[in-house]
Structures are given as C-alpha cells and as structure tokens.
C-alpha cells in the first residue's frame, strides 16, 4: 500500500519533505511538474553518475573515430592525397571530434532512459495526472505499516499542509 500527499506550492513541498525525513518517514518518491531546486538535497538524493557515461562514451568515440581513420589510411587503403602523409593527424581531427560528441551524447541519453525506465511504450505508474500540471505529490511506502501507523502518517501529512491524501494499492 502507498500513501500520497498533494501540495500546490513548491515551498510547502520542500517543507513537507524535510519534516517527513526528520520524523524518519522514508519517502518513496516525489512527483512535480518541473524540476524543483533543492529537492534532491532535501530528499538526500545522490549526485547522478550519468555525466561519466558521456565521458566514457566520448572517449570511446574519439579513440575509435581516430583509430578507424588511422587504420584505413595506413593499413587498409593507404592512398596519396595531395601529397599529405598517410597518417595526416590534422585532417583526422574533425571526424574524431564528431565521433566523440556523437558517442558521448548517445551514451548519456541511452543511460538516462535505461536508468529511469523511460522509453517508447514504457508504462510507469502515474499516481495523479495533476502531477505533470501544477501539483506536487509525495508518495510514501506504507506496505510495512500497521493500521495505526498509517493514521499517524496521514496526520503528519496533514500537518505539513497536504491538500489531499490518497491511498493506493
């Protein structure tokens, strides 16, 4: 079972998240119509490692882009073009650069979609359709609570100014 609380202001949401965490109530997730600044800090979310995926992808792109050109022009198909050396580094730079950017962008976006379980046809649970419009939703996991606790949690949510509280199974 899950309990969700609804807020209509960013400040109330941040407040509620802080209060709930102070009371050792773990928050399952928060939904908002736009990225709320400071929410990751309030929820204690760790910094994402995604930029590293871009770096690794970019490095692979650069190395393979350069490697391909070097291999083609020194081994597979050495050909004299305008008297330039076979391994003409300056003219390999543009393609190397483009490969690096392409691989980096693709890796970070794929990693992001995969990690967030987003993608064509993905059907993630929507608690309330107002969450993408103008409401802020705090979702608590209540499966381990006994009935009394759930009541207490509900009180806590009300205390923090939740406009609406819903139960989900």
């Amino acid at each position: 079972m899950e309990i969700s609380g609804y807020y209509d202001r960013e400040a109330n949401l941040l407040d509620a998240v802080k209060k709930l965490r102070e009371n050792n109530i773990s928050i399952k997730d928060v939904f908002s119509p736009y990225p709320v600044h400071g929410l990751d800090l309030a929820m204690g979310l760790k910094r994402s490692w995604l930029p590293k995926a871009a770096f690794v992808g970019g490095a692979i792109g650069a190395i393979s882009g350069f490697g391909l050109q070097a291999w083609v022009f020194t081994r597979a198909y050495p050909i004299n073009i305008g008297g330039k050396p076979f391994l003409s580094v300056p003219s390999f730079i543009p393609v190397t650069f483009e490969c690096a950017i392409l691989f980096a962008a693709l890796s970070i976006v794929l990693a992001y979609l995969f990690k967030s379980n987003l993608g064509a046809g993905a059907d993630n649970k929507i608690y309330d359709e107002r969450a993408t419009d103008d409401h802020f939703v705090v979702v608590l996991d209540a499966s381990n609570f006994v009935h009394n606790d759930a009541e207490k949690i509900k009180m806590k949510l009300e205390e923090t100014g939740a406009l609406d509280i819903k139960y989900h199974n």
Binding site: L39, L45, I108
Partner: peptide, 30 residues
Amino acid sequence: FGWTGSAKHWQRFEIVSFTLAGLAAPLVLS
C-alpha cells in the same frame, strides 16, 4: 516514454540536459 515527473527523473533530466548542452555547444561551432 512513460514520463511521471519523479524527483529522480528530474534530477537526471537536468544533468543530462546540461551535459548535452556542454556537448552541443562545441558541436554548433564545429
């Protein structure tokens, strides 16, 4: 793509946008 507006997604969304911007800026020049 099954978007929900989860805080974790937003956090990643922001960092991905920012990194993509960092990649696209030199790309525009190139």
